[in-house]
Structures are given as C-alpha cells and as structure tokens.
Amino acid sequence: MARYTGPRCRLCRREGMKLFLKGERCYTDKCAFERRSYPPGQHGQAQLRVKLSDYGIRLREKQKVKRIYGVSEKQFRRYFERATRMKGQAGHNLLQLLERRLDNVVYRLGFAASRSQARQMVAHGWFKVNGRTVDIPSYLVDPGEVIELKEKYRNNPQIQENLEAVVRRGVPQWLELDAENFRGTVKALPTREDITMPIQESLIVEFYSR
C-alpha cells in the first residue's frame, strides 16, 4: 500500500498547524513549522492570502485528520463508511475508530514518540495484545485488552526515552499505563473529549456527504 515517505514537516505546514508527526522534535525550536508557518512551495506565502472555498475547507479538514493518524485515502474512506453504520454521530464514531488503532494506542501510551514510529514497532512485532503477538497497526483495540511490550525490547534506549517523555504529552483517561511492567490497559472506548487536537469532524462528514 502506498504511503507518504516525504518530509513530515511539510504536511504540518500545508495544514497550517502542528500535527506532531516527528515526536519530540515538534516541541523544540527545530520544528520547521515554528520557523516557516506558511504552506510549502515557491508560492507558499502567497497562499496565505487565498480564501478557501467551502469545498476547500472541508477537504483540508479531511486531509488534516488523515495525516494525523497516518492512514491512506482508501483506509480513511473505509473508516468513514463504517462510522456511518454505527450508532451515534458519524463524526464521533470516525474519530473513535481512528483512536482505537493499535499504532495510535501504542503512541498514546508513550511507547513511541510518534504514530509513524509506533506503526513501525507494531509491524515488526514488538507488542502483544492479551498475550498474543499482533503486528497489524490497524488492529482495533477493545475495552479490557492489555497491550504489552515484548521483554526483549524493554531495554531499548528509545523505549526508555519515549516513556520518560510521555509525561509532557500525558496518557488519555481511556488508557492506563503501567510503565514499570511495560504494559497498558484499555479501560474504555475513547470519547470525543479524549481527543484534544483541534478537529472539526462535522466538516469531514459534510465532505463525504456532498
């Protein structure tokens, strides 16, 4: 499946906000968005004066959320279609499905500095879910499931560094981290209040409903 492999800071600049795609670097002065907060490209600064159409506003919101969670267009469309079949508001359901992805949960628990790093760790079989190895980043966790780092990776300096840095980011209330035993528990399904990024999911619903 094709996946974006170019400069990640370029995506933040394109969406006009920090998407925190590069982990700790996003919190430092080295962050490219801090130095150049206008869109990338030769005419990037000129684009700041361009007023988006209603379609453009909704497209940008969809692109922003898709890039935050690192999923492809085809995957994102599938998540939306599944969200519309669930009870409740389609926008809230969509965000809940994205939050329940195993790579996102690994990132949220603090084992990884970014979702892309978490995706790589999961794909390489670093984690167990309820005692069984799961190497599918899109695996959807359920309440009561336990995500555990395999013992042979627990002395990895990157893991140690990431767990120390999670204090800055915090662990959402629907998850519980046991850092000493390198495991996390899904206490409940994520709610809309657990998602702190400035996302207007209603615009995404309108985009696909046009």
Rank of each mutant, 00 (worst) to 15 (best):
S37G: 14
G70L: 00
R78D: 05
R10D: 06
Q117V: 14
K87R: 14
E206L: 12
T5G: 05
V141H: 01
E24R: 14
S53Q: 02
L97D: 02
E34S: 11
R49I: 05
L98W: 02
Q75C: 00
K22R: 15
S53I: 02
V205T: 07
V166W: 00
G41Y: 04
E24H: 10
N156V: 04
K87Q: 13
G16D: 06
R210P: 01
I136M: 15
Q117N: 13
C31G: 09
R168W: 09
P7I: 10
G41A: 05
E81R: 10
L175S: 01
G184H: 00
V129Y: 07
M197E: 15
L140W: 07
R67K: 04
C26G: 07
R3S: 14
L109S: 07
K152V: 10
Q42E: 13
V171K: 03
L203V: 04
I199T: 02
L97G: 05
F182W: 06
R82Q: 11
E206F: 02
R60E: 04
E99N: 07
F111W: 12
E99K: 07
K18Q: 09
L109N: 06
S202G: 03
L21Q: 01
V167F: 07
A46Y: 07
N104C: 11
V171F: 03
Q158Y: 13
K87I: 04
T133I: 15
T185L: 15
L140R: 13
F207K: 02
S116C: 04
C26F: 06
Y208S: 06
P190W: 04
K64V: 01
E24C: 06
S37Q: 08
R132G: 03
V106P: 03
R183Q: 13
T84Q: 10
F76N: 01
C9Q: 09
R36S: 12
H92R: 12
V134C: 09
L11T: 08
I195Q: 05
P137F: 12
R119I: 08
K64E: 00
Y79Q: 00
L98R: 06
A2T: 14
K152L: 05
A2Y: 13
